[in-house]
Design a protein around this nucleic acid. Structure first.
Lengths: 108, 108
DNA sequence: CATTCACATGAACTTATCTTCATGGGAAAT
DNA sequence: ATTTCCCATGAAGATAAGTTCATGTGAATG
């Protein structure tokens, strides 16, 4: 019998506070990522080129956004595709992020 | 001649990034303060009683909000009155904070 | 003017976040 | 099967933010 396989792990979303969500957004690089994803899904490589940060650093930032349920990822060949989570993206009327506690409207 | 008096110092507002503003908001206590001030100006003592944090700690948090130009203070007798800055408060239609880079809508 | 009230400030400490470095892992190509 | 491409992870160090403690300051009060 297999000893409880470590599950693909859809990163358990435990109740997250508003402060925690804002904290996840409160970083230039991560904001840049979110703004990129507001115009549609992107591969890490593409974001990486535009942002000009180290690959590993971007990866860590992406993890923060994932844990805050702001973005989600998906394999695409040997690349990985990122997008805003459906809850956040919702309608994407204009530049509005639907965070649980509040809405963030990037007027730009 | 008086040797350059230390000026009342309206806390110089240097160009502030969106990430910095969000960082200032990304804290439970500071969010609570902002939410209180959305219903009008308050004295430190009143906020302090409702929040139940140490006086000195609240004071530090208020400083963060002041430096981000989210709130401003004003002496009122021996107390101090806090309010949202006019730029942030602007219309205050609903629960919307007008930060420079974006708008924050507390749907609650 | 000494004291109290209401807050603010600075230094020291604790804890969290950011960044780098080395390494690991899945998928495609050779 | 080995190598390459693309990205993720973990540990460790650097930096920043949060918290506490002691003290300071302006305004009212006695």
């Amino acid at each position: 019998m297999s000893p409880t396989k470590p599950q693909p792990e859809t990163e358990v979303n435990q109740p997250i506070t508003c402060a925690e969500i804002l904290k996840a957004l409160a970083d230039e690089t991560r904001l840049a990522v979110v703004r990129q994803l507001m115009s549609g899904p992107k591969h890490v490589g593409e974001m990486n080129r535009q942002l000009g940060v180290e690959q590993t650093l971007l990866s860590h930032h992406l993890r923060v956004l994932r844990k805050a349920d702001i973005v989600e990822s998906q394999r695409d060949g040997k690349a990985v595709l990122y997008r805003l989570t459906p809850e956040v993206d919702s309608k994407r009327r204009g530049n509005v992020l639907e965070l649980g506690c509040c809405r963030l409207d990037f007027n730009g």
